[in-house]
Write a protein that binds this DNA or RNA. Structure first.
Lengths: 345, 345
DNA sequence: ATGAAAGCGCTAACAA
DNA sequence: TTGTTAGCGCTTTCAT
């Protein structure tokens, strides 16, 4: 079914014939080469416009061994952080006249590995990625790097791979959140995370523990609790069980979907936020302000992170920049205090 | 900077040399052609695997004049409807071993038209799109169709173009929402929309008016109010002005970002939702349930719509399906009643 | 069942 | 300044 109306397909050959010049002249003129006369250039550009000539990207990519396209590889897309980050990425991709392929791993290592294998083909000139939660073996990523495809990580980075990385300070974010809850009088704070992400979770755990240690509180294993990044009844049940058993008076939810999960779990347990239990969540949702109660959040500069990641990649692609390995940019996240952590006073 | 480690680039030529067969044999064997012996096939597949052969997509696309990639063209991505729709699309794209390019129009006709022009190049085999709000002239879309690129519209469709369309029933959605507000005792309902989308808005307006007419209420022009699809202070101010002037006791917000805008406008005006004013919003945000108060929504089957749109496109692409023009699928949206439209009793 | 060869549309030496 | 030519890696007749 790919026949189409191939009748009026105009290519360089067509232009060459019409203008009585060689194909090479057309090619050079269109790429504004310096060894084509201004007058010829104009004629070529003009008739190209008239005949609605559009270059065939695949011919060009095959020949040049570069595709003017990048891949965005992320765990999921129905997430305010990632969708805002994509906006940032897109702003640069568009500006550079590139194209962006989007791939969702759904946090599956297998899918991620397969995608990377496929991308060995030269389909993209570079990759922007947030790694899947359960990716431990990172050989697939290293392989692609060795094949010469530059990679920039954003948010969910792989620490032990030499590549550019844009992230927020997970240690400090968790530290800020924990200290805030302590300041609000919490004595028994649970850190709720999701499975996977060894490096990120470790950093957040450390930040959490440091804040506790500063107040001479011994962290309990049971307060570090992990469930799935889903918003469903089962997850609510799991969280309810944790709350019932551990009876935290403060919860730090480290991923977006846990916000709704936590609120609903508390509601079902008839726990009042913030009186009975205070809640902080890592999320960029703009509705945080109008939740019941409004939600204290750790806000990441998603758009800017996406933009920065794309900028780094394009600097590298255009040769302006080389030391990708040493780029390790940490952007500040922000604690936005709202009613979900308010004290009674 | 696109040199990479081209040293170990293995292509069909490499395989042919290694196996002492012709390139044609390799090609056929890998595509499981019937005129290659089973034994040869196995040998080819085996060594391809061993040498980590991955076909060059651009060579293949150039030759076959089809790219195994589609374009997703949408106004924005930081929107729960679109991101959920993309999830649905991706589920099919992945299954069909296709690739998806993502393009954001930011609701700009100029950008949209330019993208379509670019896609004349044959970069994609098909397009899934939601049209930009201010697109009136649709020649760019027709041009691409005439060039043989199939297009499936979802959600924001262009009625007068013969192409497959997946949408929800805008007339009925607005009708349901309006009737619900009337049932809850509202007498002065405002329909808040955004600029653009003639066909969608007209349908919603009609549904709104029909519900009013059934109760013998004359719709007032001032109750149909349009602002921008932004979440910012200016937009809040504009909405506040409307509320102050028109004093509606019910608001139907027809796009997602208007939810937060409306809530904050009411808060600033010290209007209690739902006592002073009831609110319904067209949105798929999962946080609707935990807003203050929980928000009555018109929910669209975003994931299924994306999936369905992709399915239609691939049926067509694989020749299984031809009558794209007559496909006009309307999927039911759902009114989810919550506290923002609750009556006092 | 396998191979030779043409060519998809473009780029980039190299010649003229 | 312009043209000739040799591919990029793959698919696909058409021979054998």
């Amino acid at each position: 079914m790919t026949d189409g109306t191939k009748s009026n397909k105009v290519n360089m050959k067509t232009l060459a014939k019409v203008l009585n010049v060689s194909i090479a002249t057309i090619s050079k003129a269109l790429r504004d080469s310096h060894d084509i006369g201004d007058e010829t250039k104009q004629r070529v550009i003009e008739t190209a416009r008239l005949l609605h000539y559009v270059p065939n990207p695949y011919a060009s990519s095959l020949r040049k061994r570069s595709s003017n396209t990048i891949a965005i590889i992320i765990p999921e897309i129905a997430d305010s952080y990632f969708s805002q980050a994509i906006n940032g990425i897109e702003s640069i991709v568009d500006q550079e006249k590139y194209h962006a392929l989007i791939y969702l791993t759904h946090d599956s290592y297998e899918r991620e590995a397969q995608m990377f294998n496929e991308l060995t083909s030269g389909r993209v000139d570079g990759i922007l990625m947030s790694v899947a939660s359960n990716t431990k073996d990172t050989q697939h990523i290293k392989n692609l790097q060795q094949a010469g495809v530059p990679i920039v990580f954003f948010d969910r980075v792989v620490e032990d791979i030499p590549a550019a990385k844009i992230k927020t300070d997970d240690f400090n974010s968790a530290y800020m959140a924990t200290r805030h809850l302590l300041d609000q009088g919490c004595k028994n704070i649970s850190l709720v995370t999701i499975e996977g992400y060894p490096s990120i979770l470790q950093a957040r755990e450390s930040g959490y523990k440091k804040a506790l240690a500063e107040r001479d509180i011994e962290p309990e294993d049971q307060n570090i609790f992990s469930c799935s990044n889903k918003y469903n009844q089962e997850n609510i049940a799991v969280l309810k069980e944790h709350i019932t058993n551990v009876k935290p008076d403060g919860i730090i939810a480290t991923v977006e979907h846990l916000a709704t999960t936590t609120y609903l779990a508390c509601e079902e347990l008839k726990l009042n936020i913030p009186q009975d239990i205070k809640v902080v969540c890592f999320t960029n949702q703009i509705t945080a302000a109008i939740l019941n109660p409004s939600l204290t959040t750790v806000l990441q500069p998603a758009y800017d992170m996406g933009r920065k990641a794309a900028e780094l990649l394009f600097w590298h692609l255009s040769g302006r920049y080389v030391q990708m390995e040493s780029e390790n940019i940490v952007m500040p996240s922000k604690l936005v205090v709202r009613d979900s952590t308010r004290t009674a006073d």
